[in-house]
Amino acid sequence: MFFQIVHISGTTVYCICAILLWWINRVPRTNPGAGWWAGAILAAAVSRALLFALDGAGDPRTVLFAYGLFSGLEKTLLALGIVRFLKLPAGERWVRTAAGLFGGGLVLAWLSPALPLWTLRAALAGFNLGMLAFVAIACLRHCPADTGPWLRVAAFFSGLLALHWATAFPLIEAFPGWRVTGLALGTVLVLVQYLALLACVLRQFQQRLMDAESKALDLAYFDPLTGLNNKNYLSKLFEQALVLATRPHHLVAVCYIDLDNFKPINDSAGHKAGDMVLQEVAQRLKSCIRSTDISARIGGDEFVVVATQLEQPDQVERIASKLLERLSADIHIGGATYPLGASIGISLYPQHGDTLSSLIDAADTAMYQVKSTHKNGYALYDQSEPPERAAAAG
């Protein structure tokens, strides 16, 4: 009775695993190993069903041949799935060659009554042991990071199964009662092995989702050309900057930067050169701001720098002067030299506004005050002074 329970439960669980792996394999861009493993565990279910159906009702040689044929097919598909999963093209030729030799030898042993039954058993045990050892070694040597520990679990149980096949037939010969116990043990080991492989595929799905989410966040919050923050992310970071600004004697400055002489570069050298200039500008901004400051690109050639944790208003002028010096230096790209400049408007929190939008508007107004005079300078927002009379320093 226990023999029948082991067969029926094992075959049923194998079929469920095969369905799960086949279903997962239908998902676009799934690692192809899942499809091979679905076929492998289905072959294991068929071998188990054949052993149950033919046991005691047919020639032992035929029973062992039928069982061995599908058991060997299962190990072959398992190994090919590992080869595809780990992208090991050299291993596929070895697996196919070994499977072909095993299949031919199995048929020859079955069709040759003069050969003792143990030759069939030895061929089956030797082939399965070799395939499982290959799977275990390949998993351990080429385990990708995105599978987590699950591929190592599969390798461990593949090694246990290899040991199981190495000892199964000798133990059955010595202890006939081991036949049922060994079958139950093998069922459990195979089940854990395939569940670990299923977990590897699901872990890759999880990693894909995390990577997609990270990429989506990059697209939502970062400028793809320069790598700087964009306006959406600037708004979020500004809220954190205001928390620091609420500390006693701390200020936040918003510097609105509009590049001078950028349009002629685009017109004369082309947009590719213009993009390279913007990338160089972004690198210069990153190099001259502090770790607590925020830089962002908010338009074609317009940038914003938020300077945080300022204790004295005159610190703003030093920051603006440093930005102006770096941005006014000629840019050398592809053997050409491009003169550049910057008009910088500055606003302070809380004197000129208490929201990012109001502070950017004030800094933008100050920037146009610089533009209306001589460009390539900076000015602090002064609401009482009309644009045409604003003093631009630097």
Results as ranks from 00 to 15, higher is better:
267 D>T: 12
46 V>I: 14
126 G>A: 04
260 D>K: 13
189 L>A: 05
61 R>P: 11
133 A>C: 15
59 D>V: 05
254 V>N: 09
296 A>P: 04
73 L>A: 08
329 A>I: 02
140 L>F: 15
182 G>C: 09
92 E>M: 05
120 L>T: 03
77 L>H: 03
56 G>M: 00
70 F>N: 03
290 R>P: 00
147 T>L: 15
244 L>Q: 10
303 F>H: 15
377 G>L: 08
84 R>Y: 07
393 A>I: 06
3 F>E: 06
375 K>D: 09
252 V>K: 02
189 L>F: 15
335 G>T: 03
157 F>I: 08
5 I>C: 04
189 L>M: 15
379 A>L: 09
23 W>A: 06
318 R>M: 11
116 P>F: 08
257 I>E: 02
206 Q>F: 10
348 L>V: 07
151 L>G: 06
28 P>T: 05
361 D>Q: 07
154 A>Y: 09
84 R>H: 10
268 S>Y: 09
374 H>N: 08
103 G>D: 04
16 I>W: 12
373 T>I: 02
61 R>F: 01
103 G>R: 02
89 P>V: 00
260 D>R: 12
32 P>I: 01
53 A>E: 09
74 E>Q: 11
79 A>Q: 14
91 G>T: 05
52 F>Q: 13
327 L>K: 00
176 P>A: 09
138 A>Q: 00
174 A>P: 07
342 A>E: 07
18 A>K: 08
318 R>L: 06
315 Q>S: 01
111 L>C: 10
335 G>C: 01
310 L>Q: 02
195 L>Q: 13
85 F>T: 01
337 T>N: 12
386 P>W: 06
94 W>A: 01
303 F>K: 15
354 D>Q: 13
176 P>D: 13
323 L>K: 00
140 L>W: 15
77 L>D: 09
220 A>L: 07
79 A>E: 11
242 L>D: 10
362 A>S: 11
135 V>H: 02
15 C>M: 13
116 P>H: 06
377 G>M: 02
316 V>T: 08
12 T>R: 10
304 V>A: 11
321 S>L: 08
187 T>L: 10
77 L>P: 02
252 V>T: 15
111 L>H: 00
235 S>T: 14
175 F>V: 14
339 P>W: 14
164 H>F: 05
366 A>I: 03
166 A>Q: 10
72 G>V: 09
293 D>I: 11
72 G>N: 10
156 F>L: 15
211 D>G: 11
365 T>G: 01
358 S>R: 04
369 Q>T: 15
187 T>S: 11
137 I>Y: 06
62 T>H: 08
279 Q>W: 07
110 W>Q: 08
279 Q>F: 07
392 A>L: 04
282 A>W: 10
173 E>D: 12
17 C>K: 07
13 V>Q: 13
187 T>F: 05
245 A>H: 07
259 L>I: 12
166 A>V: 06
393 A>Y: 12
155 A>D: 02
192 V>I: 15
190 V>S: 13
220 A>C: 10
298 I>Y: 13
50 L>D: 03
144 P>E: 10
370 V>S: 04
8 I>N: 07
111 L>V: 04
99 A>C: 04
